[in-house]
Write a protein that binds this DNA or RNA. Sequence first.
DNA 1: CCGGTACTGATACGGGGTTGCAATAAGGCC
DNA 2: GGCCTTATTGCAACCCCGTATCAGTACCGG
Lengths: 160, 160
Amino acid sequence: MTVAPRHPALPVGDLEDAARAVREAGGRLTAPRRAVLEALFAADGPVSAEQIADGLGGRLPTTEAVSVYRNLDWLEDIGVVRHVHLGHGAGLYQLAGAGEHAYLVCERCAGVTRLDAARMRRVRTEIEKASGFRAHFDHFPIHGLCPACATSTARSGDAA
Amino acid sequence: MTVAPRHPALPVGDLEDAARAVREAGGRLTAPRRAVLEALFAADGPVSAEQIADGLGGRLPTTEAVSVYRNLDWLEDIGVVRHVHLGHGAGLYQLAGAGEHAYLVCERCAGVTRLDAARMRRVRTEIEKASGFRAHFDHFPIHGLCPACATSTARSGDAA
DNA sequence: CCGGTACTGATACGGGGTTGCAATAAGGCC
DNA sequence: GGCCTTATTGCAACCCCGTATCAGTACCGG
């Protein structure tokens, strides 16, 4: 799970589509690999390797953790999968092509919000104007306070 | 090393100042604690717990790693220290009150840039307009491509 | 249906950090 | 200055999140 690779995203629409991508990358569609892909399709939102290994809490067959990691890595290499870090804990994996967006993580309530592509682009433009940096928000999230928590914090701040 | 605590920052100017803060928080100024503070004052920029334990590469007395972690945690609790994550690896610690700023980490060359407070505020304003989120950039950095790497990537992109 | 090789599972290892607990030592109080 | 309380230390063991090694398995092209 390296940070930089940036293999071109290779969005896949369904399992068959993914199988094709696997084949085209010179890979074999083994049971564990299929299981990982199925879990990624079944999940809504980013999931941890452990969740995948557990079959998303029993809904799907379980898979050896090592194989999950290896497959996620390889699938990320060929562009089918991306991973994101939403905090200090384990990385979370999802299918590439879920569309580019930024994750916003609230430091107080731990809630995760997604910023749609259009709004994210405006933020990116601002950062580029300010720094020349071309920001990505798809790997590490933006941390801060969600509107609700920002408001309550401001109130207690007033009181103090 | 939790993510959320957000204890009010308690900037300290020098070791004596820090000692006072420690005392006022009901803590004792032990040798390891002093060593951690000295390392933080001696370091320029964020440093890892391991670097502190090693006495910044031999320049300072070494300290047991556990004590370094415990002291950093506690100093963060009282607001004297903050930590930041610039990538997948170890967290990096620094004195609070180094001024608020955003870290920008290049995914290609791994270079770290700092965005000054004024520019950071403009970015934050843009994010707040787009999402209502009050973003902090002092704990997780902004990832992306620095101007140089963005340019070279664009060139190879053209070629492809 | 056979062989080469991608892949698996078991096991061991690594970084990064935390926890339990007995021993130590700050520093407030007299 | 000495005592006593209790914060803090140091050691060792442990936990999470992965990675590496390697012998064995099984995919799939011929």
